[in-house]
Design a protein around this nucleic acid. Structure first.
Length: 502
RNA sequence: GCCGCGUUGGUCAAGGGGUUAAGACGCCUCCCUUUCACGGAGGAAUCACGGGUUCGAAUCCCGUACGUGGUACCA
């Protein structure tokens, strides 16, 4: 059983953590479960679980066991598991591996101030300082009991041994060693009775029988605490294998990529649109901005991993087949939105249009184009897909197949416009009206024939013709367009522009 | 400050003692296309620094620098 821990929301790093875990689990034939580790109830937002589940579904990374409902390991919410965590914390105290601490926030501040004043290079609540603090280690048993009986607020802290080395083997980084003298006595159970992440992951991993756990690199420094917990609670042999994934960094400057960077630089960092129910703020998603899930998964997979070949475009199935955890990088990678768009472009080109036609239809609909003929839409998409990077580019690249251009770039025609050309188009309209075979080869033939009769170069006439049909200097071949939009529409657009130019 | 992790073009990266140091994105030039793209051919651009080890170092070792994460009753 595998458990990536996307903490907080589902941003790029979170999805990638889940993705790598998914690939690893599928490759090795294990169950894949996703657990959202967020023990802070004050930050919990209604709908976040469903939202994350929807994102995973869009990405095609559906867990083997629903994290939302029932199952043999329910309940899942931290608040509903409060008593379970407390039980383990109390057990640690009883065994001498943890202790009650009654220090108030003010006392903790004072302690740090004192340490700072002495020039100490550690401000931690650890072995060097704990015997000077207000806790059950220093207090006599009856003093502690008295405080407890009085209902004095307390936390339970782990008692980290001094002068020991703790090591473990990370699936990506290999052997890592920590000196316990640098590890502080982390709070395990908070004054409100809720566990901290440290206690919660260890207890949950054990109870939910997790064999491999994937999480972000930021958790590496707290690994010794978790190892100690495993040692005292369930035995080191039962401890899951860990993979600490590299961070995804800001494209510019340095630091971990955050939601704010996306807003600032104009790209999404979430998989799908997310509206914060409290602040009513909308955060843009890759899906809504016009990404294909295949591209989204692909770009995430190769950010910090590659299979050692030149291949860059991978489907999810290929990734499962070729993924290997050893090839995941140790260093963080900067996110590059340009490259992200390139992946989307690649997937738009190589996927059959039918597989994303529905979404394109929605994008067109959102722009006021109601598609009635799916077959027609397929043909249009086939014609323009090479020039679409995002799904909503289909609107700008193909709107003229469905409606007359909103504006005509007559400025690009006028400078070289003359009576000869005017005559040509009048003649072209007459010829096209009589055409019985409305097909691009025939249209082109007639066009060129009339041009040569009038002693005009077809090249000089193609651009005006294009602008008449499309509105500007873009789009597929002009005769393809004319053939698609029908005789009536073509003639209508020519005459309309002619009237504009005069 | 202390501790952990990292460092190959602007970005993603291959390579793990002998290579002309792959490839991709982006950028530039040209070809194709009587539009814009797609496609094709080229180009500029890289081993953080200093010491070792070695016949030989991007590659191994040690320092330094830089970056990043942690150092919370956040996750």
């Amino acid at each position: 059983r595998f458990a990536p821990s996307p903490t907080g929301g589902l941003h790029l790093g979170g999805v990638r953590t889940v993705l790598f875990n998914y690939l690893f689990a599928k490759k090795h034939g294990g169950d894949f479960i996703v657990r959202i580790e967020d023990t802070d109830q004050t930050r919990f937002v209604e709908g976040a679980e469903e939202y994350i589940f929807n994102c995973l579904e869009w990405c095609g990374l559906v867990p083997d066991e629903s994290v939302l409902h029932g199952g043999e390991h329910a309940p899942y919410r931290q608040s509903e598991r409060k008593e379970i965590y407390r039980q383990y914390a109390e057990q640690l105290v009883k065994d001498g591996h943890a202790y009650y601490a009654f220090d108030t926030p003010e006392e903790l501040d004072a302690m740090r101030e004192r340490l700072k004043a002495t020039g100490s290079n550690s401000l931690q609540y650890d072995h060097s300082i704990r015997m000077q603090m207000n806790n059950s280690l220093r207090l006599l048993p009856h003093e502690t009991q008295a405080l407890l009986d009085k209902g004095t607020p307390y936390v339970i802290r782990i008692k980290v041994p001094a002068h020991e080395f703790i090591s473990f083997t990370d699936m990506i980084r290999g052997d890592i060693e920590f000196d316990t003298n640098n590890v502080d006595d982390k709070v395990l159970l908070k004054a409100d009775g809720m566990p901290t992440y440290h206690l919660a992951v260890v207890v949950d991993d054990h109870l939910m029988k997790i064999s491999h756990a994937f999480r972000g690199e930021e958790w590496l420094p707290s690994a010794p605490v978790h190892i100690l917990l495993w040692k005292h609670l369930f035995g080191l042999d039962a401890m899951p294998q860990w993979a600490h994934l590299p961070l995804i960094l800001k494209p510019d400057g340095n630091g971990k990529l955050s939601k704010r960077d996306g807003d600032r630089l104009g790209f999404p960092v979430y998989a799908m649109d997310w509206t914060d129910p409290k602040r009513k703020e909308l955060t843009k998603g890759f899906k809504e901005i016009g990404f294909l899930p295949e591209a989204f998964i692909n770009l995430l997979a190769v950010l910090g991993w590659n299979d050692g070949t030149e291949q860059e475009v991978f489907s999810l199935e290929e990734l499962v087949e070729k993924f290997s955890i050893e090839k995941v990088h140790k260093g963080g990678a900067k996110f590059d939105f340009e490259k992200a768009k390139w992946f989307n472009h690649e997937w738009i080109k190589r996927l059959p249009v039918i597989s994303y036609q529905l979404i394109v239809k929605e994008h067109l609909g959102a722009n006021g184009i109601a598609v009635t003929d799916d077959n027609y839409l397929s043909k249009v998409m086939e014609l323009v897909k090479d020039r679409c990077t995002l799904l909503n580019d289909f609107y700008t690249q193909a709107s003229f197949f469905f409606q007359s251009p909103a504006s005509i770039d007559t400025d690009s025609i006028k400078p070289k416009w003359d009576d000869k050309k005017k005559l040509f188009f009048a003649e072209l309209v007459r010829a096209y009206q009589l055409t019985s075979v409305w097909e691009h080869g025939e249209l082109e033939r007639e066009f060129k024939e009339i041009a040569s009769v009038n002693q005009l170069k077809p090249g000089e006439l193609m651009l005006p013709f294009r602008i008449m049909l499309v509105g500007g200097k873009f789009g597929p071949g002009v005769f393809d367009i004319a053939a698609m939009i029908s005789k009536e529409e073509t003639i209508k657009r020519i005459e309309h522009t002619l009237s504009l130019i005069g």
